[in-house]
Amino acid sequence: MASLLKTSSMSVRTKLIHQTGLSLYNTSHGFHEEELKTKLQEFPGGSIDLQKKENGIGILTLNNPSKRNAFSGVMMLQLLEKVTELENWTEGKGLIVHGAKNTFCSGSDLNAVKALATPEANFL
């Protein structure tokens, strides 16, 4: 466990995942990582924008104002990328998360959620 706590560019969570052979994607609901990514990419729209300021403050913007910043499938994938980027940002001290155009987030695109729903998942 001590080797996990050494300072490096990889987060502790990422190290644990690599050492245990786990994935960020749970296969218990019938999806594998690449399948899930492909399925989520079928639901475009919006973006997750990240600004990293010199003072160590990050600003993460949910940017899909036409849908009240609802998460599209593509946005879900982008969020994972941005979180990984932030975990590796050694100068980071804090994070502000907000939605574009005065709306935080209305939730997830229900079409994407329905597409991912399986009897095992019990999403709907």
Rank of each mutant, 00 (worst) to 15 (best):
residue 104 F to K: 04
residue 98 H to A: 11
residue 27 T to P: 15
residue 70 A to R: 09
residue 29 H to S: 13
residue 25 Y to F: 13
residue 51 Q to C: 09
residue 17 I to E: 11
residue 84 T to Y: 07
residue 55 N to R: 07
residue 17 I to Y: 06
residue 74 V to L: 12
residue 35 E to M: 07
residue 46 G to N: 01
residue 74 V to M: 00
residue 90 T to Y: 00
residue 87 E to H: 11
residue 105 C to M: 12
residue 5 L to N: 10
residue 121 A to D: 03
residue 29 H to V: 09
residue 50 L to E: 04
residue 79 L to V: 05
residue 75 M to R: 05
residue 15 K to S: 07
residue 28 S to L: 14
residue 74 V to K: 10
residue 57 I to K: 09
residue 26 N to M: 06
residue 30 G to L: 00
residue 8 S to R: 05
residue 91 E to L: 09
residue 59 I to L: 13
residue 16 L to Q: 09
residue 46 G to Q: 00
residue 68 R to C: 06
residue 3 S to Q: 14
residue 34 E to L: 12
residue 63 N to A: 10
residue 94 G to H: 02
residue 120 E to P: 05
residue 48 I to M: 11
residue 72 S to W: 04
residue 12 V to H: 09
residue 10 M to E: 13
residue 25 Y to E: 12
residue 42 E to S: 15
residue 12 V to G: 03
residue 119 P to L: 06
residue 108 S to C: 14
residue 60 L to S: 03
residue 30 G to T: 02
residue 62 L to T: 04
residue 62 L to W: 04
residue 123 F to K: 03
residue 105 C to K: 02
residue 120 E to N: 09
residue 40 L to E: 02
residue 56 G to A: 06
residue 65 P to H: 05
residue 19 Q to A: 11
residue 67 K to W: 10
residue 93 K to V: 08
residue 93 K to A: 03
residue 49 D to R: 14
residue 82 K to H: 02
residue 6 K to T: 12
residue 98 H to T: 12
residue 94 G to R: 02
residue 111 N to S: 14
residue 98 H to C: 11
residue 111 N to H: 08
residue 119 P to M: 04
residue 73 G to K: 03
residue 40 L to F: 02
residue 2 A to T: 15
residue 79 L to P: 06
residue 66 S to P: 04
residue 89 W to H: 08
residue 61 T to M: 14
residue 119 P to H: 08
residue 114 K to Q: 11
residue 45 G to I: 08
residue 56 G to H: 06
residue 66 S to I: 14
residue 7 T to N: 09
residue 64 N to R: 12
residue 26 N to E: 13
residue 8 S to Q: 01
residue 30 G to H: 04
residue 59 I to S: 07
residue 98 H to S: 09
residue 35 E to L: 02
residue 39 K to F: 03
residue 92 G to W: 01
residue 45 G to Y: 01
residue 31 F to G: 06
residue 9 S to Y: 10
residue 22 L to P: 01
residue 36 L to M: 15
residue 92 G to D: 03
residue 34 E to M: 12
residue 58 G to R: 02
residue 9 S to M: 04
residue 36 L to G: 01
residue 53 K to L: 12
residue 71 F to Q: 00
residue 40 L to T: 03
residue 115 A to P: 06
residue 16 L to D: 04
residue 10 M to Y: 08
residue 22 L to D: 08
residue 3 S to D: 14
residue 2 A to I: 14
residue 20 T to L: 14
residue 96 I to S: 01
residue 77 L to N: 07
residue 114 K to Y: 10
residue 39 K to A: 14
residue 120 E to C: 00
residue 27 T to K: 14
residue 41 Q to K: 15
